[in-house]
Computed example of a mutant assay.
Amino acid sequence: MSDPASVLVLGDIALRDAAALLAAHGLELVAVDDGAPIPGSYWGAPEAGIIGSRVYARGDTPVHSLLHEACHLIVLPPERRALVHTDATDSVPEEDATCYLQIVLADALPGVGRPRLMADMDAWGYSFRLGSTRAWFERDAEDARAWLAARGLPTG
């Protein structure tokens, strides 16, 4: 897959499943009307946005973006999460952990799963030194797994 237009979007999955996954991590999914600006979106629509413990997304928001932005909040301690508006990353290790966790959490969304999410990340243009998301996840993400494990976050 190499066409960004072919990635799964929020409208392709059950909104309640995505909301339940985020709620399990103390986050609220806020559905944004089609065509409306997405609050807290770093890259702009259709990318998801984050403000505090809320993740904003529209029906055309890619699932990988929804998970990525949610994972930015999940990896933060509550005191830092409360201060987030649009940009949550303060380090490369944190960004790597976010990418890793979004792949892990994809299995919790019916109709998504790791293989599809990794293909969508590649199609969207995520860049890893081994050339693909799967190669990075399987062979080069020890540091991300260790970062997550040290904080008691899911790694498998």
Rank of each mutant, 00 (worst) to 15 (best):
L148K: 01
A45T: 08
S65E: 01
M118H: 04
V104N: 05
V112W: 01
R134V: 05
E95T: 08
P4N: 11
R139C: 06
M118E: 02
W147N: 03
P93F: 08
A82Y: 03
V7E: 01
S91K: 09
S132N: 06
G26D: 11
S53F: 11
D3I: 05
L27Q: 04
T155M: 11
L101Q: 01
L83V: 10
A135M: 07
E79P: 03
E28P: 04
Y56F: 15
V75K: 04
G44I: 02
S127A: 14
R16M: 11
V55Y: 05
V84S: 11
A36Q: 14
T98K: 07
L83T: 13
M118T: 00
L27F: 09
G113A: 13
A149P: 05
G44F: 07
R116F: 08
D140W: 05
A149Y: 04
E138Y: 04
I74Y: 04
G44A: 10
A19I: 08
S127F: 11
R129D: 14
G26L: 09
P39V: 08
A144D: 00
D90H: 14
Y56M: 08
G59I: 00
I13S: 08
D96K: 14
F137T: 00
H72L: 08
H25I: 04
Y126R: 05
L73F: 05
T89F: 10
E95C: 06
A45H: 07
I103L: 12
A123L: 10
L101I: 01
P62M: 06
M1R: 14
R114K: 15
V63L: 11
L105V: 04
D90G: 12
E79F: 11
R58L: 06
I50M: 13
T98W: 01
W136I: 02
M118N: 03
R139S: 10
R16A: 15
R116H: 10
L67H: 03
D33R: 15
S6I: 01
A141I: 01
D87T: 13
M118L: 12
D33C: 07
R139H: 14
A108W: 01
G35K: 10
S2H: 13
L109P: 01
L117C: 12
L73N: 03
L153A: 11
I103H: 02
P46W: 07
T133L: 03
R145S: 09
L27V: 02
G111R: 10
A108T: 07
V32H: 02
E47P: 00
A19R: 15
V63A: 03
T89Q: 12
G40E: 01
A88Q: 04
G125Y: 07
G156L: 13
D34V: 06
L148Q: 02
W147L: 08
V92F: 13
